[in-house]
Amino acid sequence: MGVKVVVYDADYNKEELKEKILKAFDYFNLPDFKGKKLLIKPNLLMAVPPEKAITTHPSLIESLIEVFKEKGAKDIFVGDTPGNTSTNMEHIYSITGIKEVAERQGVNLINLYTYGIINIKSDIAGEIPITKFIKEVDYIINVPKLKTHTFMLMTCAIKNTFGLVPGMNKSKMHAIAINPEKFAHVLVDIFKEVNPLINIVDGIIGMEGEGPSAGNPRRFRKLIIGNDAVAVDVVSSIILGYNPQEIFTNVIANKKGLGEIDIDKIEIIGEEKDKLYNHDVARVKNFYSITKNLPSFMDNIASFLFNKLIRQYPVIDDTKCIKCRICENGCPKKAISLINNKMVINYSKCISCFCCHELCPQKSIRLEKSLLAKHIFR
């Protein structure tokens, strides 16, 4: 088989991780890193400690830094841009444990907001702005976190490159691509441009339930590595209990020739293929995915049904809300505002992208279903 994905049982022990990463790299035809510049791109969604299982664990980042140093890399950079555009990058690096690692290893933490942007073409969005810094390094090392996702079902290798869209441009993309399928096209366009050299997934402690931030940590004990991001996401989706065809990014990226979606054509190294699937993961049910196979002439009917009658929507819990206004700043449709000292959602503007739910550090936003949706998805 031509496509390989390495899956090892692992814990957050640096030396163990280094050993397994080096062993996995032998299965891929990787270039010589001597004298090269690398960007390690973790998932740093928000300023939370590693034990929350929302961000890529610093032990994995440190292991990778040491591996690439030993392979002769000239300059190693670590960088991401969070969903919450008002968060100070230094604060995020500090709370997530990445700053301590960078200082100990003597590598560069970068603020991707300061490097300008380049625009790439997209059929859905027209143009997508991404950080210009990707053109200043030789290779990008993609280090996502394995998590369920309320909007996209799963976040892993392909979606992790969305972090290279800086600032409020993330919200603009959500405002343009208002359903998961369209948004998946945007994600795949970004991924294609970023073109990571290798993908190393932190699935040691991932997240199930209402991810990517409000779910619950789950110990999968998996380190997943591959140079085909579609194949990596296929394996990751199976570990999360999904059929790979349910994940729009898998399907779209495969159709564009960016990777392998057929699990029977993927060679799994280190783990028996039939032991990957977890039937008891608390998965997300995406209402929109039900309509994906309907004829095109029914699109408007389906849109009405799923936006008006069979709906999932965010609700703010006033007892938990601290009025930090992160939800307001991150809402792509400006549907949230502070009124009479209370955060209020204007549901006539809400597109159920769940950015507010994803970004809330207090977990004060829950997702509710309409009565018809509760009946269908009980």
Rank of each mutant, 00 (worst) to 15 (best):
I141K: 01
V137N: 06
E260L: 05
I268M: 10
I21L: 14
S213D: 05
L39A: 03
N179G: 04
K172T: 15
K172S: 15
R104H: 10
M89Y: 02
N250P: 08
M154E: 11
A335E: 08
N341W: 04
H357N: 13
I21A: 10
N199Q: 04
T87L: 15
D11N: 14
A73N: 04
F133A: 06
I61C: 01
D233Y: 07
P212K: 12
E16Q: 13
K222N: 14
M173W: 06
K333Y: 08
N293G: 08
I118W: 08
N142M: 03
K342S: 11
I238Y: 05
L22F: 00
I92E: 00
V232M: 11
S213T: 14
K23H: 10
P129Y: 03
H185L: 03
K222Y: 13
D32C: 03
N293E: 10
P31M: 09
C356W: 04
Q245L: 05
I336H: 05
V137K: 11
A102G: 02
A73W: 02
G163T: 08
R104E: 15
S289I: 14
H149T: 10
I266D: 07
S213Y: 03
P82C: 06
R221K: 15
V344G: 10
I290N: 13
L367T: 15
P196I: 03
S237N: 12
H357K: 11
A335F: 07
I239L: 12
Y288K: 12
V281C: 07
D318P: 00
K99M: 04
I124G: 05
G167Q: 09
E127T: 14
S289E: 14
D318H: 04
D317F: 02
S236C: 08
S296Q: 12
Y8T: 04
D80L: 04
K4Y: 06
Y242I: 07
K132Y: 13
R283T: 08
I61P: 00
H91N: 14
E51A: 12
K52W: 04
N250R: 11
Q105L: 12
F162K: 09
N329C: 01
I205C: 05
G226L: 08
Y139P: 03
V107W: 01
L109M: 05
I301E: 04
F377I: 10
T249Q: 14
E181F: 05
I322N: 14
I238F: 04
L223Q: 09
I54V: 15
S337Q: 12
I301P: 00
R366E: 14
C327H: 08
K14A: 03
D32W: 01
A47M: 01
G97N: 11
S94F: 01
L367R: 15
S59V: 15
C355R: 13
N278F: 06
K18G: 06
L22I: 13
K256H: 13
A47K: 00
N195Y: 01
Y288M: 10
K222L: 12
F220M: 12
Q105R: 15
L17I: 13
